[in-house]
Design a protein around this nucleic acid. Structure first.
Lengths: 150, 150
DNA sequence: TTTCATATAATTGTGTGCAATTCAATCGTG
DNA sequence: CACGATTGAATTGCACACAATTATATGAAA
């Protein structure tokens, strides 16, 4: 009621996107000390999380899971390969597809990473209910956006 | 109950941080077509949003509002200056402080940006209640993290 | 089978994002 | 006033992130 300028929408505090963006960055920053211990960046960490589950996956499927494209993944995967955590090779059936496979060393790293989720949970400190609500809202948004792009 | 591997926490779907990170990126991607029209990147856009409100602000205060540091802001502000949207000059009282001031052209851009929040609202499509809950949870997290760093 | 369209990863270029360092200005203490 | 500590911006170096382009491989159609 107070504001009739027509510019109300153009305020940082009135945009959902901004706290989302800021929150994401700040939480990732909280991960840094824990990830430093296993010498991974955040993006490398979420990539390894997929590989700890899948053992083997194509770059395209990996990109869909992580919402990342080959421009980001190609150099990142080369670094993980250089660290000895994964191998990269072309699919025999279709040479266009590059398959990423976790190595022994990559598997072993999982044991060193096992406490990170709990350590981080302490940093963020939401109630289970709040976490659930937030989680569902975020995946609802992601679902709607993905649906739009087909 | 089903899973006793001890690795349950190390799954992408069980980490709050991941949907937050993915959601932030995907929404920013949705902004692109609208921001292209006024030739701003997302980071430049939120910077201009502060300046449309404040007219004039120091780099330090700007960084605190945007959760960005001088390493990000310095080159970004130079680009905005090159576009003629802002000016940069040192404070007379304390030469360490760099003051950013919006120009006429910067003010004028506000009129071209005025529809962006509504256009984006259509893209995300949450109910007002959901948006409010999400908004409050995010600022609650941001508040707790800021409080920890004093 | 040749050729055109499609699929996929890699490359290129631009713009963040942040830690660490540097540099200049200011402040506080003796 | 001197000088060491602090502050604030700029710089440097590294790692994304993504749009656009390129290159190669596959598949489909004539």
């Amino acid at each position: 009621m107070a504001e009739r300028s027509g510019y109300e929408g153009l305020k940082l505090e009135n945009q959902l996107c901004f706290p989302l963006y800021a929150c994401s960055k700040e939480i990732i920053k909280q991960y840094k000390p824990f990830l430093d211990k296993i010498d991974l960046t955040y993006t490398q960490y979420i990539t390894m999380m997929v590989l700890w589950e899948e053992k083997q996956i194509g770059v395209k499927a990996l990109g869909e899971k992580l919402y990342l494209d080959s421009g980001t993944l190609t150099p990142l995967l080369k670094k993980l390969e250089a660290k000895g955590l994964i191998t990269r090779h072309r699919s025999k059936e279709d040479e266009r597809n590059l398959i990423v496979t976790i190595t022994e060393a990559g598997e072993a790293l999982r044991d060193e990473a096992v406490d990170i989720p709990m350590d981080m949970g302490k940093c963020v400190d939401l109630s289970p209910d709040e976490a659930m609500v937030l989680y569902q809202l975020l995946y609802s948004i992601l679902g709607k956006i993905s649906a739009k792009g087909e």
